[in-house]
Each structure stands twice: as C-alpha cells, then as structure tokens.
C-alpha cells in the first residue's frame, strides 16, 4: 500500500538512490514518463444496489487518499447504456505537484458527494458498456498500471436492442469486482452466483485482462497492490 506521505520513505531508498545515481545519469535527458497508476471505478446504480453507494463513497475516498500525483482516477455510473460520456461523473489525472493534486482530490470528493446525494436508481445495468468506456479512457491516458473497479452485483441487465456479446479488448487491465452482493436467485441456487462470476472471468481473460473479486473491502489495499 502506498504511504500517505510520500516523503516518509525507508532509508534504503536514500542509499539506493546514491548508488544508482551514476547509472541513472547515463539515461539521456530527463524524460517524463506516463503517470504510474490509472483506476476507473464503475458504480452500479440499478435497483437495490443503489443503496450500497455509501460504501462506494468510502472506497472512492480510500482511493483518493492512496493515489499519488500523476495518477489517473475516474468514476462513472452504470445504468441502461453505460458506453457513454454522460455517465462519467468525474475523471482526472492528478497534477504532478502534490499541493495541486490535493486540491483536485478535494474537488473530486465534493463531486462524488453531490452525485451520491442526488443519484436515482437506474432501470438497467450495462456493465459491459461501462467496462469498455473505462478501458478506452485508461488506454487513452496510458498509465503504467491499469485497473477497472466494478462496484456491482455483476448481474447485467441490458435494455432491449443493446448489443454487448462481443469480445472486449482488455490487454493489461485488471478488472476487480467489488462488493458483489448475492441476489435472491443466488440464495436459491448458489451455483448461479459462481456461474455469473465465472462468465465474467472468462470474458475478461479472453480479452487479455485479469479478473478478481473482492467482497471484503478491508482487503482492498492488498488486492489493488497500489
């Protein structure tokens, strides 16, 4: 897990820098590399899951506290047609200066607060559209490490006429399903829950991505490996 104050680093880094300085100075020039981490969080606002948004807010706050200057973070809602810019609540690449990045995080927090206070339940759940939207943005920003977090029960419910049964391009993207709640049919037949998650795992892995499920949010820091 990243430290909250980046300067509080272990002593070995100081020694390591000293030793590696000579080698590093051979690198031609001072090149700006892409920011390290990109995270996109999809919030399911359909039906009963809309009641879980307070937990989602905690996750967002945790991520805001963990991400560093230069990292990218976006949040979008999942509703009937999520492959759309209008569903993006906020997305930002934090400034390289820590003080400016902190101000951006404050603004981010306010926007999310405003959203969760006024959100209304959606009639459908287009998870695939949201994942495609997130993957597209992360590809565009180009961070070193990319993660799409899905705060949902992972039950897709598309409006009529929407086509989503095609392979997704998810090379190098870690798709993490958070707080996957069990539905009523899952209680009747728990195999339905496993089947649903397995289907998503297959789709993500077929697209070149990596799929993980985290229901215990206390383990978030370990699972995210931020």
């Amino acid at each position: 897990m990243k430290r909250l104050i980046p300067s509080a680093r272990p002593a070995k880094r100081f020694a390591g820098i000293g030793m590696a300085l000579a080698a590093a100075l051979t690198v031609a020039g001072c090149a700006s590399t892409p920011p390290g981490t990109g995270v996109f969080l999809l919030l399911d606002t359909s039906g009963t899951y809309a009641g879980e948004l307070d937990r989602a807010r905690s996750v967002i706050n945790y991520l805001l506290g963990t991400l560093d200057p230069g990292d990218s973070f976006g949040v979008a809602r999942i509703d009937g047609g999520s492959f759309s810019e209008k569903d993006i609540i906020m997305r930002v690449t934090f400034d390289a200066r820590p003080s400016v990045a902190n101000d951006q995080k404050r603004l981010f927090m306010e926007r999310i607060g405003a959203f969760t206070d006024t959100v209304t339940a959606a009639a459908h759940t287009d998870i695939t559209g949201g994942v495609l939207q997130a993957a597209e943005w992360l590809e565009e920003v180009g961070p070193g490490s990319r993660a799409v977090l899905i705060f949902s029960d992972m039950e897709e419910d598309l409006p009529e006429g929407y086509i989503r049964d095609f392979p997704m391009e998810l090379d190098g993207v870690r798709v993490i399903a958070l707080n996957v709640t069990k539905l009523r049919p899952d209680n009747v037949d728990p195999r339905a829950y496993a089947t649903r998650l397995d289907a998503w795992r297959e789709r993500v892995q077929a697209g070149g991505g990596e799929f993980t499920v985290i229901n215990d949010l206390e383990r978030l820091d370990v699972a995210l490996e931020l």
Binding site: P6, I17, A20, L21, A23, A24, L25, T26, V27, C30, A31, S32, T33, P35, G36, D68, P69, G70, A96, R97, P98, A101
Partner: peptide
Amino acid sequence: GATSRLGSM
C-alpha cells in the same frame, strides 16, 4: 513535479 523521472528514479 512528482511524475518526472530520471531512469527509474
């Protein structure tokens, strides 16, 4: 800036 890097540092 916190994102600029010189080699791995």
